[in-house]
Amino acid sequence: MGDLPNTPSEIPVKFLTVEEIYAAKEARRKYLAKLPIDQKIDLIEQLHEFGKTMIEARKSLPKQGASETLVRCAAGGKGQRPEGGQPGSERV
């Protein structure tokens, strides 16, 4: 254990190339496509639960129009309206 590097800069990190990432994704796709039906069903069930959770989570997001979001982003996230703008004039 004493030989383990103790600072992040000493930890050997290998970055994958785009080709390696693509090959890994392709291998995963092939593996998942060929799973036996019942294992696939387990996976589909998990993804179904995940999808339902995401939909529920989306419902709890603040009701904010996309246009207002854009203006907020443009104003550096401070929620400012364009200069001289009236409520409702923030549409972009």
Binding site: R28, L32, L47, H48, M54, I55
Partner: peptide, 14 residues
């Protein structure tokens, strides 16, 4: 989607 996912890589469906 459910039928398709029995043949191809599964993804989320509702």
């Amino acid at each position: 989607a459910v039928a398709a996912f029995l043949y191809i890589e599964p993804a989320t469906t509702l």
